[in-house]
Design a binder for these strands. Structure first.
Length: 743
DNA sequence: CGGTAGAATATTTTT
DNA sequence: TATTCTACCG
């Protein structure tokens, strides 16, 4: 340990920061305003704990993302020069608790190889339940049902509790959703039966584990002597409860957060957890980090003015010692096309003397990015959109992952259903439904059913049954290698799943890309196993299931303008911020406007947006906006009235606004265009990569064995003439025909 | 059973 | 507009 380096760091801390770092015993609340050096305080605090000879393995630090955790660990290692820094229990609630649950799984009637369902999986299950029950899908909208289940679980109400709760049952009656409890029930059973947990289960089961097993709780209380939680304002009820369980013994709990930046109530987050912390524990030490080191005085003033309209908040005065800076710009546009185009144009001018990476365009909803993209593309300005699908949510990746999950956890029905007929194996909907129903009745997982004599009890045609057996054999072959090393598993996946073959058979641009992604996945699995130096399929799947990371923010210091939703911008900073579409109904959103709570959350969201800026902010709204295929009138957000005095306004609407034609104009890649392009590729030349020759024996998926008699590539579109064993001669297009070469 | 075309429908944020 | 569902035909 290097005391000197520690001291050097402290001299850079202000008085409050220093106190927050060095006060280590008892319950502590650090209220950290935007730009107040929060991350530094957290890392230095943990480093300080270690410097006082606290064992890093006794520290639990819960962060908002796993990426943040990794960065902090690295930083703490640098400060303390203590290799043990990496043994800190640091990560998201979900990933840390998944780790604990895996160890203690048997206690809560799970197997320790349980797999994790993401939201897509959960939704699919719920859709299926609703369909099976033949319920009106207007009344029982899968998304709504799922979010209600999720909210319930966040409130510590599982399906059993729900059944007992008359108030809730009554609520369903009033809303004519009496079947809700049955869906909830069945969903929970399916998850458990499949030895799977969804995101909420990871939290709720941890809570139950501790609640019902005092000796286990004690073990972890002793292990986690020092607990630190970042972004406490965004915790939900289960998370708050678990922290209270774990912290009960030593009460060394340090929560960090900013009530003004709580923006995740839609997934159960509750600011009250933070507000009530003071009342739950006695002698809570409170530290307020009020100096904003990020933004100009003007920006901080606007942010303060805005947030003062919220009633529910902790008193604090954020201030900046930086220069006044420029006034916040407000621009009114005629429509969203103009907004996108002009914003791009403003950035075009600005990047003559600033870096692209200093600019970020923020918006409320993902769909707003489109018009700005057009504007930027037209001007040849490089940009990157954050959000959308993460790598691990892509279809082709999830398909492969389904096989991997199934290898680890044979009972994972959702994964099995995903690939039972992909690539197509002649197992259609009727068969799948039959087999599913039967599995439900027998209370078995589908794999267990396939693998048992009971399969014979279902009346399938011989053909269907054969197909099921072929599928079963594929799985068996894969399951055999679970204990082999990962390289072998990958090899087998490539060979057995047929996914790669299917994609290769139809090499469109899209499919080639998918193949690349799959290759990337295989590489990262290999890297992972080399890095961790053991057979770690479960660990890998675990990490992937909880990997929330999307596009890395400026990984290679590349130069581009960043586009993202305000939610995604949390924790980031940029010199120049552009906030688009600040209109009633969009920001604040239509839904939120009905309740005061909703409006206050949207206001906090606006606060987050404003406080991302270091130097300048440009806010805009439009009078007309294209939505759902039609143009609608819109009005400027009432949030803007709340900060009216601080704004420098420009009105640019002219009804005849035309978008300037441009030098670098490239057409946007709409799906239609993309399809046309794909079709073109298909029409273009094709030659089989296997170098087909006369005399080669092949086997065709329909016509069986045959011999190539002629290869014709005269028009660039390769055809082969094949004499099949039944003496039939056929001409096949190699780009479409499915066949293997035997010799 | 599998693939596709065209209709129907939904649009907030995501660990 | 973008995505998901449905109906139909090979």
């Amino acid at each position: 340990m290097n005391q000197n380096s520690l001291q050097i760091n402290y001299s850079n801390l202000n008085a409050q920061q220093k106190q927050a770092v060095q006060h280590i015993e008892g319950p502590i609340m650090i209220i950290a305003g935007p730009g107040s050096g929060k991350t530094r305080v957290i890392t230095e605090r943990i480093a300080y704990l270690i410097s006082t000879n606290i064992n890093p393995g006794n520290i639990l630090a819960l962060t908002f993302t796993n990426k943040a955790a990794n960065e902090m660990k690295k930083r703490i290692h640098e400060i303390t020069q203590n290799q043990e820094a990496y043994s800190i229990w640091m990560g998201t609630f979900h990933s840390i608790f998944a780790k604990i649950l895996r160890k203690e799984a048997h206690i809560i009637q799970y197997q320790n190889n349980f797999t994790i369902y993401d939201n897509e999986d959960s939704l699919k299950i719920i859709r299926r339940i609703i369909k099976d029950k033949k319920l009106d899908k207007e009344v029982y909208q899968a998304k709504y049902i799922f979010s209600r289940i999720s909210i319930m679980k966040n409130q510590l109400i599982d399906h059993k509790e729900y059944k007992k709760n008359e108030e809730l049952i009554n609520y369903d009656k009033i809303n004519k959703r009496t079947e809700f409890i049955n869906i909830f029930n069945e969903y929970s059973n399916i998850c458990h039966q499949s030895n799977c947990m969804d995101f909420d289960d990871l939290l709720l089961n941890t809570y139950y584990l501790f609640r019902d097993n005092p000796e286990i709780l004690e073990k972890y209380q002793v292990l986690f002597k020092y607990i630190l939680i970042d972004e406490y304002q965004d915790t939900n009820k289960v998370q708050d409860k678990i922290i209270k369980q774990l912290g009960e013994k030593y009460k060394n709990i340090c929560i960090v957060g900013d009530d003004s930046q709580s923006i995740y109530s839609f997934r159960g987050a509750n600011v009250k957890n933070m507000l009530n912390f003071k009342f739950f524990y006695k002698n809570v030490q409170e530290f307020k980090l009020e100096q904003n080191y990020r933004s100009t005085k003007n920006i901080v003033t606007v942010a303060n003015t805005l947030i003062s309209n919220n009633k529910e908040k902790i008193d604090k005065t954020i201030f900046s010692s930086k220069e006044n800076g420029e006034k916040i710009q407000l621009i009114e546009y005629y429509n969203d096309r103009e907004e996108g185009d002009r914003t791009a144009s403003i950035i075009e001018k600005s990047i003559q003397h600033t870096k692209k990476s200093e600019h970020a365009i923020l918006y409320r909803t993902n769909s707003q990015s489109k018009v700005v993209e057009d504007g930027l593309r037209k001007r040849g300005i490089k940009y990157k959109i954050f959000g959308g699908l993460s790598f691990y949510q892509r279809k082709e990746i999830k398909d492969i992952m389904a096989f991997l999950k199934l290898i680890v956890n044979h009972n994972d029905d959702e994964s099995l259903l995903r690939i039972i007929n992909y690539p197509t194996r002649g197992i259609g909907n009727t068969t799948i439904t039959k087999i599913r129903q039967h599995a439900v009745n027998k209370r078995k997982s589908i794999w267990n059913l396939l693998n048992s004599k009971e399969l014979d009890e279902i009346n399938f045609t011989k053909n269907t049954k054969n197909k099921l057996i072929i599928f079963k054999n594929i799985l068996e072959d894969l399951f055999d290698v679970i204990n082999e090393n990962i390289f072998k598993i990958i090899e087998l996946l490539e060979e057995k799943t047929g996914i790669i073959k299917k994609l290769e058979a139809d090499p469109t641009e899209d499919n080639i890309n998918k193949l690349k992604n799959i290759g990337e996945l295989f590489n990262s699995i290999k890297l992972f196993s080399v890095r961790k130096n053991k057979n770690t399929l479960i660990d890998f799947i675990n990490e992937v299931s909880l990997d929330e990371s999307k596009e890395e923010v400026n990984l290679n210091k590349e130069e581009y303008v960043s586009l993202m939703t305000i939610h995604q911008s949390k924790g980031l900073e940029f010199s120049h911020i552009y906030i688009l579409g600040v209109e009633n109904g969009l920001f604040p959103s239509e839904r939120s406007i009905k309740t005061l709570k909703g409006v206050e959350e949207e206001r906090r969201l606006f606060y987050v947006a404003i406080t991302r800026a270091i130097k300048t902010i440009t806010i805009s709204y439009t009078l007309n906006r294209f939505q759902f295929g039609t143009m609608i009138k819109s009005t400027k957000s009432f949030f803007l009235d709340e900060i009216d005095n601080h704004l420098q306004k420009t009105y640019s609407p002219r009804n005849n606004y035309t978008i300037p034609k441009n030098r670098y104009f490239k057409k946007p890649v709409t799906p239609k265009l993309k399809n046309q392009r794909l079709k073109k590729i298909k029409k273009e030349k094709y030659k089989d990569h296997r170098n087909l020759e006369i005399g080669q024996k092949i086997t065709h998926n329909i016509f069986g064995k045959g011999e190539i008699q002629m290869v014709d590539n005269s028009d660039g579109n390769e055809k082969i003439t094949v004499l099949f064993s039944n003496n039939e001669r056929k001409i096949l297009l190699t780009k479409f025909a499915k066949f293997e070469i035997i010799s």
